[in-house]
Write a protein that binds this DNA or RNA. Sequence first.
DNA 1: CTACATCTTTGGAGTTTATCCAATGACAAT
DNA 2: ATTGTCATTGGATAAACTCCAAAGATGTAG
Lengths: 204, 204
Amino acid sequence: MELGRRERKKQQTKAAISEVATLLFLERGFDAVTVAEVARAADVAVQTVFNHFPAKEDLFFDEEGWWLGPARAVREAGDPLDALEAHYLTSIRERLAVGHLATWKQFVATIEGSPALQARRRLQADELVRTLAEALDERSDERVRNRLLAAQYSAAQNLFEDELMRILPDDASPAELVEAQQALEKVVAEVFAVLRNGLTAPRG
Amino acid sequence: MELGRRERKKQQTKAAISEVATLLFLERGFDAVTVAEVARAADVAVQTVFNHFPAKEDLFFDEEGWWLGPARAVREAGDPLDALEAHYLTSIRERLAVGHLATWKQFVATIEGSPALQARRRLQADELVRTLAEALDERSDERVRNRLLAAQYSAAQNLFEDELMRILPDDASPAELVEAQQALEKVVAEVFAVLRNGLTAPRG
DNA sequence: CTACATCTTTGGAGTTTATCCAATGACAAT
DNA sequence: ATTGTCATTGGATAAACTCCAAAGATGTAG
């Protein structure tokens, strides 16, 4: 679809605002930067910022709807657990791609430094669980188990994220990256084994 | 410990504020009532409200730390799953006690009508999961499983709450109460059976 | 009982996020 | 060129929350 100049300029200002905002947030922390400052740095009116982003938090979380991924993965593949494991391994590899990692660690650190961003992330996690549970409902009518599984997936994701933050130094060398990826994939395998076998089964 | 008049009056104003605020919130919704209104209704200065309650949400959630219950239950009993099941059955019975139910349904409805209150409840749920996971860590060093179980317990609690809201009419008769309690306890038994046997084991 | 210290309450000014609205200016369509 | 649409803007406003200094109530020591 062809975009007119007007729409193009609109997207342009939106992108400019988001970019300058993200830089400021990463540099000085989310709570320490006011929307007025962002507007000034982007050379637009404060109202323009709110025209494009419904709330301040949306300036930071510009990626749209990653939390719908697991539900989609379940819908598009055969066995739900296989689908979820594959989906998670893919997202891990993306995160560990060269250049992405440092940025990602900074993102997480910024979130952990701001109650408002943490609240927003909880909302996203909730959305993930809800949509995943609905997707699982389409595969099996065992509502109770579907909801428990969805919660476990979300918990597993948190686990992996903590683990990543823990084992990876800020400036990881390529060798360390490979090592970390192998370590993480081992944890993923362990977690999904637990999910498959159930909590009380003996570990593999 | 003996409380002086000063401290007594302080608690008194705090209680008065909390009470009048809760009434207003239940009646007209959390977001539709301003702190200034609460202050006016309680005949105190706005600043006085914030002297006693760090944030507006604290005017609604005055009960302190119920979300630490599961962790405590695990620490004080033998088998963690038995402890959690017993703890949850107890809390259900409290909620279904005569007189408490209508109030509780109103509370939940008010929460569901306010994004701010929902966010606060998510924070509490997070705290529950975190503390429960720590308590489980003291019983077993299988960190991964402990975290998955904690997440499942939280999910189960949400399930029960939804179920309670769904099956119970606002003005339940004593007979309906008994019936609802039996239905709920059956669901609880089913969920904990799943937790014990694992997701993939055949249902009982 | 008086004087002094402490602590709660209060009013006022200010900050920040967010909304509403009317005016302006760039772009699109005829 | 005119006219309508739409993004942008400034201004006013609301609401949660903070800071601060003054006032009022309470506790304490002489």
